[in-house]
Design a protein around this nucleic acid. Structure first.
Lengths: 352, 352
DNA sequence: AGCGGATCCGTGAACGTTCACGGCCCATAC
DNA sequence: GTATGGGCCGTGAACGTTCACGGATCCGCT
């Protein structure tokens, strides 16, 4: 007993029935069966029914590999994404897979890590090898996008990257994050704040650049001057240290647009430790709406992106290209979710 | 300009070179080329080199679909996972893909949602259709696992599910979460706490059941009596409300093992709102080590699972089954990460 | 000189489909 | 009665590999 593997031997299962088996059983030629499973015309109703019944009986399923071989269309799309389980990319990935499947496409995913110059071309090759019909790249980082631009792939490539530009081989779909950043900042402006700082993400990320741009644009549009902006690395740690520094230098702004919820988290802890109250002393708005952000101390006002809509649009575009259709792209719009971490500026005065 | 699509027409790329093209160019038969790319013997060094050079020149790559068709081995594994981007599953998924690729396998993933009775068999069929060699199911929920057990698949299926049992067709790999829960609880015990409550997850999740079991076992092993246990749904919201209730009923325990970091988060907020201090008044240990948990208020003591190790073991086992090898399974062990949310029991006395 | 055995290489068939074509039958029209 | 054509169906080939053979050449041995 202890000697036994504990695992059953790989059961040597029966061969799957082929189109020929069905043809024989139904008394027709393989071509007729092919016609039936492809909904082709030129087959009489009674024959069709007979074939269909046999198919049902023997549990026939079309062999995708054979089909792929002869048509050189695999009905598989490739998804290339960053290996880090960051919030945005993962949400997009899940939505992408689901939508693709609803459209009859399977999806094979491959993850890449730094350095992208090596891993991205290799990953693209892998995808090419397995014969995908098209590729969607979730490229949050600029270096990653660059590696994709430089690559030479035979199939349509679409990139989900905020604010990047398209090239002839690579089509770039931009999630509307600048708008999200604007909304966050505008919320602060509407609340009456005039000194609005930004704890930014890394400028090596599209998201970082674009969110900063949105912050700045909103402020200028309101006729204000941009406040302090410090560029970080997305980590709570960096934000925490920055928060500490701000307090000790006496430069805590009226309001802060944090580039991500995790950034906000680090900030909040730093302020809490130094007796600076959020939102009474400083209003904070985050970005992402990560799980639990509604139970931060205080609950975080933040921006939520509509990943399913983004994925939907991306899939539509890619499948359109693959299948030669025209599609119109409707950008997804983020939504501001208002909670407790940002309050009107005048309340601040009265309370402190 | 405005009329134009903005998208380049799908470039009709050259056909990829086949084994025959290489053969012709190298002046050998296709079989010889096949031998070369398969590292088969019976080919002279000079011929091999010549072929290799041609392969290099024309950029030949083996067509996996053709290979799959004739060998009925696709070197693709299927990964079936829950659609919700919860922490554990996603970490496992990423690690799985990476490892599989390192072993020469591509991976196609499909996500499922409730009701599992419908979606799981359908997903399994999808995977079967694309011709995967084996399937790894990431099954956090019991209902999902049940659906897998009942399914009939032709290829080896391995399930990553804590504490489930194996059946002849489905091999279950159990991440050692009970141990993790024990470690968390033991930490509290070592700190001198005797009244240790558990805010549990849902009993519909394996993780929920197993973590609860670990909590209870650790307490009994220490000769103590289990404290309060309330079963929830993983959400910060539920934990928050529970925390509020505990305070108003005057039943706040000495220490709490929270089933997840997000649970801990909800608890902490509830306590903070009611003036119950963490860790001075109540020690809390979480589970997951989600991003940012080191910047909660206070930084959370929690348990981190080793997803890469878990994935590694799973892949080893599955590939072993596929390729007919024997492998020994080495369970991955979680690690306790000690931060500030749990402190010795006696400090509590002195401070309050 | 003839034989056995390596060593190297090639041919035919098969995997399960789709594509291009052609053939048969019956109905309709002249 | 013969031509025309549409509805229905079948045959051959191809996709790019691998598998199972078998054949040629050369060397060393008896």
């Amino acid at each position: 007993m202890a000697q036994e593997s504990g695992r059953p031997p790989a059961p040597t299962r029966r061969r799957k029935p082929s189109i020929n088996d069905v043809a024989r059983l139904a008394g027709v030629s393989y071509q007729t069966v092919s016609r039936v499973i492809n909904d082709a015309p030129d087959v009489s109703a009674v024959t069709r029914d007979r074939v269909l019944r046999v198919i049902q009986e023997v549990g026939y399923r079309r062999n995708r590999m054979a089909t792929a071989l002869v048509t050189s269309q695999s009905t598989v799309i490739g998804i290339l994404t960053d290996g880090s389980p960051r919030f945005g990319p993962v949400g997009t990935l899940m939505a992408l897979e689901s939508l693709a499947r609803q459209n009859g496409y399977a999806s094979t995913v491959v993850t890449v890590d730094e350095p992208y110059e090596d891993s991205v071309p290799k990953a693209l090759d892998t995808l090419d090898d397995v014969g995908v019909d098209g590729i969607i790249v979730i490229a949050p980082r600029i270096a990653m996008a660059a590696a994709v631009w430089n690559a030479d792939v035979r199939v349509p490539v679409e990139m989900i990257a905020a604010g990047a530009s398209s090239t002839p081989n690579v089509f770039t779909y931009s999630e509307n994050q600048e708008l999200g950043a604007r909304m966050a900042t505008q919320h602060l402006i509407d609340l009456g704040h005039t000194d609005i700082a930004h704890i930014a993400g890394s400028m090596e990320w599209f998201d970082g650049r674009v969110r900063k741009r949105g912050w700045e644009a909103a402020i200028r549009d309101a006729g204000l001057e941009p406040g302090l902006c410090v560029e970080g690395d997305w980590s709570p740690k960096f934000a925490y240290e920055t928060g500490l520094r701000l307090v000790s230098e006496g430069r805590v702004p009226q309001a802060i647009f944090a580039v991500s919820d995790h950034t906000a988290l680090g900030l909040i802890r730093a302020f809490a430790e130094r007796g600076v109250r959020v939102p009474e002393d400083v209003s904070i708005v985050g970005f992402d709406d990560v799980e639990g952000s509604d139970y931060f101390l205080p609950p975080l006002t933040t921006v939520r992106q509509d990943f399913p809509a983004l994925a939907q649009a991306s899939i539509d575009v890619l499948l359109g290209t693959i299948e030669g259709r025209e599609v119109d792209r409707t950008p997804s719009v983020p939504t501001l979710v208002v909670r407790a971490s940002a309050i009107p500026a005048r309340l601040r005065q009265t309370s402190s």
